[in-house]
């Protein structure tokens, strides 16, 4: 089974040289730490920055330079700043190659819910609805089951939707799965020490298993 860092490490392998990448809040943010040096990528932060760098050194924080999670960050050489309309323009126009975000639920047809729990939590969708509506390459990073032990990979989402038929791949602490265009979670890899039976038990939606399922290499 993977911890959060492990999920981030596995997703980092999906990041290809030359990509522009948008990372959501939480586990997706950690992915930046595991992209190999030889893979040249530019991180987009939807508050208006291309070329996001690491956190500043202590004492060098700039209140005018933050990421979409409102964390103080740095700008790398060659970065570009722009306004919010242009930021979502480049997202809508599919210039961003890969979007990695968290989710509360994903359905077997690729619907995603991650912004609202009626009566309990209303924080808003931020940029997530724009990202999932336009991005062609969306990876969800999340736990396989929620705190109550219920599967987050479902036949249909029960929470208010963020977007429909958009998630292409999911990486959890248990497995890597593709969401097939015709519907269903296709099991690609098992996390170290996790059995197919455990993944079956944690997946409420349609799970497709073909042949031997290899263990992840991280």
């Amino acid at each position: 089974m993977l911890d959060k860092e492990g999920i981030a490490k596995r997703i980092a392998k999906e990041v290809k040289d030359g990509y522009y990448v948008n990372l959501g809040i939480g586990i997706p943010t950690l992915v930046a730490n595991y992209i190999p040096d030889e893979v040249d990528v530019i991180l987009q932060s939807e508050n208006g920055l291309l070329g996001m760098g690491p956190f500043p050194f202590e004492g060098e924080e700039d209140p005018d330079t933050i990421n979409a999670g409102k964390q103080t960050i740095t700008k790398l050489a060659g970065s570009a700043v722009f306004d919010s309309a242009m930021s979502f323009g480049m997202i809508r126009a599919k210039k961003v190659n890969l979007t990695i975000l968290g989710a509360m639920e994903v359905s077997e047809n690729g619907d995603i819910a991650n912004w609202k729990i009626p009566g309990k939590m209303v924080k808003g969708m931020g940029g997530a609805m724009d990202l999932v509506a336009s991005a062609e390459n969306i990876i969800v990073a999340m736990q396989h089951v929620n705190k109550a032990g219920e599967s987050k990979l479902l036949p249909n989402c029960t929470l208010p939707l963020t977007g429909i038929k958009c998630v292409k791949k999911i990486v959890t602490e248990l497995a890597v799965l593709d969401v097939l265009p015709e519907g269903g979670f296709k099991l690609l890899e098992r996390a170290p020490g996790v059995t197919v039976e455990e993944i079956k038990a944690a997946t409420a939606g349609k799970l497709i298993i073909e042949g031997e399922i290899p263990e992840m290499v991280i």
């Binding site: 939807e46 969708m125 609805m129 724009d130």
Partner: peptide, 12 residues
């Protein structure tokens, strides 16, 4: 509550 890109683009 509205999507962030929608908010920006309605201003634009």
């Amino acid at each position: 509550l509205i999507p962030q890109g929608t908010l920006a683009t309605r201003c634009m």
